[in-house]
Amino acid sequence: MRELELFTVDTPYRRPLPVRGWAFGAPDKKSLAVMGALRGNEIQQMYVCSLLIQSLAELEREGLLAPETGILVVPCANQFSMNVGRRFWAADNTDINRMFPGYDEGETTQRIAGRIFAALQDYQYGVHLTSFYLPGDHLPHVRIMDTGYERAEEGLAFGLPYVVVRRPQPYDTTTLNYNWQLWNTTAFSLYTTETEDIDPGAARQAVQAVLRFLRAKELSRRDVPPSGFTPETFQESGLHNILSSAGGLLLRSREPGDLVKPGQILADILGPCTGEILEHLRSDCVGRVFFARKSRLIDGHEVAFRILPET
């Protein structure tokens, strides 16, 4: 295991912050890069990287990494925002994961994205431990951008319950996942159930998924127990969005993974001052809750749930 200082980030009124990576295996090989927290509230994602570093260090000590394997793990590239409790770059509220592939002469987050991309470029595989733009809880899954370069079948090797293929929107073209693929890296985004909090069980599941992927690609010689799931691949456009029509307090009665039927109540929206029920949010299909909004405050016409319909 080698600890590397990839670059430093200048921050106002503070000393420069180093962005560090942990490298394993052959120094001249680029097999797998894992990126953790690009946003200041991605605590779970950073925690998953810390557990992964421990597991990879053990594999390396025991000589179980394949000889031609080189792995890099970057737990966090946004310590500045994390230190002050902000999701996006604290100075101007911009999102690093909307700035790739970066620009050396641009704004601060563009320059940071450029340095990150330079460190992560040319790897055969890339895994981004990331969070969704809506505050909420997901079922664990691997997400792949439909860029024309993707190989969705490779996502099955993680052994997670779902592989989601997303047709990119214009704003997706500046994400790490999308640009990795354009520069010939087979890229995956891995989602766990938490972001701002730590879920140890979900974190271990994510680490096991990465280790299972390494074994499937013959980058590791350690056998990993099967996950017990038969992964399901589907297009993200097939999810049913359940939108609010009223704003207020959101009280969930269903959780990710719950099976629901048409008309079944998923949550109530209450008037914040009177407690009056303003709306019952109901399922519109037979399926499984795939995403549930976590924030207790909701506006009108926001996504509260996403349902994966049964086929």
Rank of each mutant, 00 (worst) to 15 (best):
Q110E: 12
L51M: 08
I307F: 02
T69C: 04
N41T: 05
H141P: 03
L251R: 06
I43P: 06
R61K: 13
S50I: 10
I144N: 04
L120D: 01
A119D: 08
Y103G: 03
H240V: 14
P75G: 01
M46R: 15
L32T: 04
I307Y: 01
E218I: 05
F100C: 09
L72E: 00
G201R: 15
L156V: 09
Y103D: 08
T109W: 09
G70W: 02
A23C: 02
K30Y: 01
F117V: 08
L243V: 03
R282C: 14
E68A: 01
P272K: 02
P168Y: 13
E62F: 11
R98E: 00
K217G: 00
P140K: 10
T185N: 11
P140S: 05
K261Q: 02
E150M: 15
T192D: 15
V260A: 00
G85D: 13
L243T: 08
F100W: 08
A26N: 09
Q264G: 12
F188I: 07
T11V: 13
G263K: 02
E105T: 15
N78Q: 08
P18N: 06
Y125H: 13
H141V: 05
T175Q: 09
K29Q: 09
I43W: 05
L56T: 01
R288S: 01
F100V: 11
G25D: 13
S81D: 10
F100L: 05
L64A: 14
T173N: 07
E302D: 13
L51K: 13
S189R: 03
G126L: 14
A26H: 01
G85L: 15
G21W: 00
L249H: 15
G102D: 00
E232C: 11
I298E: 00
T230Y: 12
N83C: 15
F117G: 06
Y191I: 04
E105S: 14
T8S: 04
Q124N: 15
V164D: 03
G201Q: 11
L129M: 11
A292S: 05
T185K: 15
E58K: 14
R204K: 14
L297W: 11
L52Y: 13
D137I: 14
Y171E: 05
L176H: 08
T193Q: 09
V286E: 12
G287M: 02
Y47L: 09
C273Y: 01
L134Q: 07
P12S: 13
T130N: 12
D197P: 15
G148M: 04
I298K: 06
F88H: 11
E302Q: 11
